[in-house]
Design a protein around this nucleic acid. Structure first.
Ligand SMILES: NC(=O)c1ccc[n+]([C@@H]2O[C@H](COP(=O)([O-])OP(=O)(O)OC[C@H]3O[C@@H](n4cnc5c(N)ncnc54)[C@H](O)[C@@H]3O)[C@@H](O)[C@H]2O)c1
Ligand SMILES: NC(=O)c1ccc[n+]([C@@H]2O[C@H](COP(=O)([O-])OP(=O)(O)OC[C@H]3O[C@@H](n4cnc5c(N)ncnc54)[C@H](O)[C@@H]3O)[C@@H](O)[C@H]2O)c1
Lengths: 223, 223
DNA sequence: CGCGTTACGTGAAGGTTTTCACAAAGGGGT
DNA sequence: ACCCCTTTGTGAAAACCTTCACGTAACGCG
């Protein structure tokens, strides 16, 4: 029986973020043939406090053996199950421009279990072409394409900013409940639709502050 | 005289991150001709608590007028000065591949005061070409190019993962003290060099967790 | 079989960030 | 000149997250 207890207590949001970090390093250990790892060793690899790891894991169950540590393969499998990354997720790209193209061609997504099954654009010159093995469909027919040919779980938004909201609406209409948003627009979406905004410029601003003030402002968070 | 007091007390790292968020919304208000804004109004726009804004600003000085609010133009100018974004920052790209190309072509960086003045690659087929008006130089000659022709302040790293560390070392050698790192590699760099890591896959993992557990884990943080 | 060693799991302590709540301050109307 | 209304700036309280410290459990060795 898997030693998982229900996650009744409130789980700090940042703990979930760190879970992905732990999984990443467990993956490496696993590939190196390491069978057991202590919270201290894993903490060193991840650059966090060992107690932090134990506490984070405790939110989801008991995975270790006292006196030994954690079984790498099992813990990795558990973390993947918890994160939902124990199976492939299908991505649908909206906006096959400069950035969208780079994302489609990014081979490392597939290695992590994220596969583009569909791509959409509005530009007739792009529609119908094949980018990195993915056929670009007409954005107007998203709902139909999703239903009949290429369903996906997560929408990746990379249109021009002024098209972002309507494109997002279309994603929701098509039944998508999670969006990775690369546009600088704050999307208005119904409850139950999850959004993650990616904005590189915030990071640039932080670097500017650090350079200007000579003090590092970057926290160790693994984002 | 500008009402700025020295930043003697300890400033929460996350407060600086929010400053960029405030500046973004002040920019919009300014373009709409709004002259004054209260912490309540700005808080609504930014999706944070009004007291948070007042506290964050208080770390850097007194910018408001009691009973009125904050003067949009002045506060914006102050924030830019504090962040160091009151002038143009020069970017140098290392690795003109899928992602690097998208970044070079991204017109919105310039609008925010970030301009690519140099680009480097190792691939002879790419070296010498012009991408979005920027000449691609040989990565081996980075130090010379930076000194003699195209200095820059912030290095943008978008090489293959296994080249990341050595490319970063070269950036440091060339005198760069801030790096925006798009590779999944945790760079080892001397103290005084600031790094911000951009990793989209963490965001995808978070979305997976949200979908799987039906509870939103995304914090309102503006990253 | 029991004892020593190790390292987990967790309550409590400690530290940091967010929010509350209110005194103080400024503007504007009369 | 005074009063009223609004909103800042800021201690204090609350919430939150991290780290400590130790009881406890499991393994392995003599
Ligand atoms: N390029 C970058 O490096 C970069 C960096 C950060 C953020 N972004 C953001 O990402 C977005 C895309 O940037 P880009 O450089 O790729 O722009 P782009 O103009 O090259 O690409 C946009 C693509 O979206 C398509 N499109 C427009 N409306 C659409 C719709 N309703 N449905 C489907 N497709 C539609 C366009 O035809 C075009 O192909 C922008 O919002 C930009 O702000 C880009
Ligand atoms: N493409 C994406 O959407 C995406 C997304 C997330 C992360 N990344 C990361 O960004 C990096 C680049 O991705 P990509 O898709 O553009 O890869 P890519 O292979 O298309 O481009 C890499 C470029 O870097 C150049 N290069 C290699 N070594 C170099 C060196 N020492 N100095 C200078 N240039 C060098 C190569 O010649 C190539 O042009 C990778 O680390 C990848 O993991 C990419």
């Amino acid at each position: 029986m898997p030693p998982t207890k229900p996650k009744s207590p409130k789980i700090p949001k940042i703990a979930v973020i760190r879970l992905a970090l732990y999984a990443k390093h467990l993956e490496i250990l696993h590939s190196e043939g390491v069978k057991l790892v202590s919270s201290l060793e894993l903490a060193d690899l991840c650059g966090v406090n060992p107690a932090q790891i134990r506490k984070d894991l405790a939110y989801f169950g008991q995975f270790g053996t006292r006196g030994l540590g954690y079984p790498v393969a099992e813990l990795l499998a558990e973390l993947k199950r918890i994160m939902g990354t124990d199976h492939v997720w299908r991505l649908g790209l909206v906006g096959v421009g400069n950035l969208g193209r780079a994302l489609l061609r990014h081979t490392q997504f597939a290695e992590q279990g994220f596969v583009f099954t569909a791509a959409f654009d509005r530009n007739p010159e792009v529609v119908g072409t094949l980018v990195s093995g993915v056929k670009v469909s007409n954005a107007e027919q998203m709902k139909r394409v999703v239903r009949e040919r290429s369903p996906f779980d997560i929408g990746v938004l990379a249109t021009q900013p002024k098209e972002a909201q309507s494109a997002a609406d279309r994603l929701v209409e098509a039944g998508v409940s999670a969006i990775l948003n690369f546009t600088p627009v704050k999307l208005k979406l119904p409850a139950g639709v999850y959004v993650e905004n990616v904005d590189f410029t915030v990071r640039l601003h932080l670097l500017c502050y650090s350079i200007t003030h000579g003090s590092d402002v970057t926290q160790e968070h693994p984002t």
